[in-house]
């Protein structure tokens, strides 16, 4: 077995868009470059965190890993095996091995299903469990694992009868029920309060250690990511701009975008209400359809110099140990 359970090499996902009739007539094709060349490896049994701005391609990356989207370019390896494009046959086993907790628990559950049906569905699809009775037991166990107790009560509810956070826990329970080895968790706890969030992350970490699971954990919450993950990768506009040990990345960020992210984090102290917060970043997120040339962060970067837009895009390079950054000027700033 290789050390890395998963590897992405220059992975890309471009969505074609045709905006207008003139585009159509001129056969002009433009693309939303949602993921534009990402390379990373996830070690067996680690929790790999993916953070970054909304719309930078985190979910798209996760969906490629789940094989819900076909990559436009690049390569993916699971257990050393090329899984970039696979047969329908292989896809079936793949879907048991790799599970996803979706970002939006509203959209990922059939509103006409009771929670027990929502959780029983994957068991039925993959023919797990002797009979209905046994499957219900598994459903109850999964609900208990995510603290939806008493499970009997929640099993009978419809998704709309749960609060936002309860629904997210039900979604987590659904992904655990098939005992996968790799879980893509797309903001599994974003709608949950911090106490419950801590408790669920604690639970997920325990399950992870017991079952030797590997997680790709997508989040916005740097504070808990620091505690929860073994590696953090920071994405900006379809690219990884910084990656490394969580303590290094958070306490000694090297990329200007990571610095902005860290400066923007709210802190529970008084005296900030009437102040407009100063975040070291300019302008708005550019569209993934129109990626700036050179360093793609340059229009928003406070440290940008001519070299940043005239020269080719910086690649990830090693700062030291397990800490990478993609910035031309990181040594100077």
């Amino acid at each position: 077995m290789s050390e890395n359970i998963f590897e992405a090499k220059n992975l890309q996902k471009w969505f074609p868009v045709r905006r207008s009739i003139t585009d159509l007539l001129k056969r002009r094709q433009s693309y939303v470059k949602a993921v534009d060349g990402v390379t990373f490896s996830i070690r067996r049994g680690e929790i790999f965190g993916l953070v970054g701005e909304s719309g930078c391609g985190k979910t798209t990356t996760g969906k490629m890993l789940m094989k819900l989207l076909e990559p436009t370019g690049g390569q993916m390896l699971l257990d050393g095996q090329d899984v970039t494009h696979i047969t329908a046959e292989r896809l079936k086993t793949y879907r048991r091995e790799v599970q996803m907790v979706f970002q939006d628990p509203y959209a990922s559950m059939n509103p006409r299903f009771r929670i027990r049906d929502v959780l029983e569905e994957p068991l039925l699809i993959h023919k797990v469990g002797e009979d209905h009775q046994e499957r219900l037991k598994m459903v109850a166990r999964a609900l208990t694992e995510v603290r939806l107790q008493p499970p009997e009560e929640y099993m009978e509810r419809f998704p709309h009868m749960l609060s936002g956070g309860q629904r997210q826990r039900a979604a987590t329970a659904r992904s655990l029920i098939l005992n996968p080895k790799f879980i893509v968790a797309d903001e599994p706890v974003s709608m949950i309060d911090l106490s419950t969030r801590a408790e669920i992350l604690h639970m997920m970490k325990q399950v992870q250690r017991e079952l030797q699971l590997t997680y790709l954990y997508i989040t916005h919450d740097l504070s808990t990511a620091r505690y929860f993950t073994d590696t953090i990768a920071v994405m900006y506009l379809g690219r990884i701009v910084e990656m490394g040990d969580p303590d290094d990345v958070i306490d000694h960020p090297r990329h200007p975008y990571t610095m902005a992210l860290i400066a923007a984090v709210c802190e529970p102290v008084s005296g900030k209400v009437n102040r407009i917060k100063d975040v070291p970043i300019k302008g708005e997120v550019p569209s993934a359809q129109n990626i700036p040339r050179g360093c793609r962060f340059h229009p928003r970067c406070l440290y940008a110099k001519e070299e940043c837009w005239t020269q080719i895009e910086p690649e990830l390079e090693i700062v030291e140990g397990r800490h990478w950054v993609a910035c031309r000027r990181y040594k100077e700033i």
């Binding site: 604690h202 740097l222 505690y227 303590d247």
Partner: peptide
């Protein structure tokens, strides 16, 4: 008080995140 304790600070490294054991009332 417990909720506030369960709110992590970014630059403070912790082994375990604090949480309030038990669950909200039925």
């Amino acid at each position: 008080q417990r909720l506030l304790k369960a709110t992590p600070l970014l630059h403070e490294k912790v082994e375990e995140l604090a949480f309030i054991p038990g669950r909200p009332p039925d």
